[in-house]
Amino acid sequence: MFLNIKKIVLPLVVNLNFTYIGKRDSVSWILSRTHTGGAIQYLCFEKIASSPSCLRMVLSTTVTKEVCYHYQLDSTIDPFGISYEDQSSLNRALKQLTHLFLSKGLEWLALMSSPDVLLERNHYEQFWIAVQAGWLDENEFPVSRSLIDDIKKIEERVVYYSREAKGVVDYNRIQEYAIIFSFVVKHYFGGKWELEKNFSLPLLVEIGQLKELKINPLAMVAKLWSKPAYPPYSLITWVERAKKQLKK
C-alpha cells in the first residue's frame, strides 16, 4: 500500500507539506502535517476487517475528538469505502479519495485545527445558578409559532456574536443564548432540568418525555460559538434530529 500512496497520493499533497508517517496498525496508512497554530492534521487511508477489499479515508486533528470519514464529505460513496480488485483499481480508489480530500477535506481539517471553547466548572456553576434563578421568562423571549424559526433566530445571533468577537470568547453571551435555547426547547418539546451526578453538569432531560433524549445546552452553544460553519454543531441540525426521534 505504501508504494501506491507514494505513487498516487504524495505527488498531490507534498506541496501542502503532508508527509507519510507510517502505519498505525496493519490496515491503516497515515500522512500528516503541522498546521498554523501547532495543530497536527492527519490524512489516513484504511481498510476495515469486515470489508478488506474496500478503502476508506479518515481525517482528524490533535485539537478535537471529531473525525471525518469520506462519506461525510461525499454521501454518494459507500460508508465502507471504495472497493477495489487489483492494483489498478486500488490506485483509482486512492486517486478518488485524494481528490475528495483536496476539494473538501482540507477545509474540514482547517476548521478542526482550532480548539472548541473550553468550559470550566465555574461556567457550569454560573449557568446552573442562572437556570435555577429563572433568568428567563416568556416575556423576555417571545416564542413564535415556529420552532425552527425560533431556533434559527437563536443560531443566527450566536453566529453573529461569535464572528464579531473575532476569536474572543464571550462566556456571558454563550450562557445567555444557552438559556434561551433551553427555554425554546422546553416550550416546544417539554423537559426538565437535572444536575448530572458525576460531573455536576446541568442537563435538560426527558425532552418530549423520552428518557434517552437529553442535552447539555451550555456545551452545545459553546460548540456553535467555536465553529459556526460546522454543520454537526448546528442547533437547527439537533432540533431536526430530535423531531425525527420524537416521531418514532
Rank of each mutant, 00 (worst) to 15 (best):
V143P: 07
D137I: 00
L90F: 12
S113G: 10
Q126W: 09
P142C: 04
I148Q: 02
S88Y: 14
H99D: 11
K186T: 06
V168Y: 12
P115H: 06
I179M: 04
W128D: 13
I179A: 01
V185E: 02
E120C: 05
S113V: 03
V169A: 05
E164S: 09
V184W: 09
Y188K: 07
A165I: 05
R92S: 08
V185C: 06
A130E: 14
R145A: 01
D116N: 15
H99W: 09
M112V: 00
F181H: 08
L106A: 01
F181L: 06
E107S: 13
Q132K: 15
S162V: 01
L102V: 11
R92H: 06
S114G: 05
L109N: 05
A110H: 09
S144V: 02
H187S: 10
F127L: 13
V185K: 03
L119K: 08
H123C: 03
L102E: 12
L147W: 06
N122I: 15
K95T: 07
R121Q: 15
S182A: 09
H187Y: 13
Q132C: 12
I129C: 06
G105H: 11
L109E: 08
L147F: 10
Q96P: 00
D116F: 10
L100H: 01
P142I: 10
S88T: 12
T98S: 07
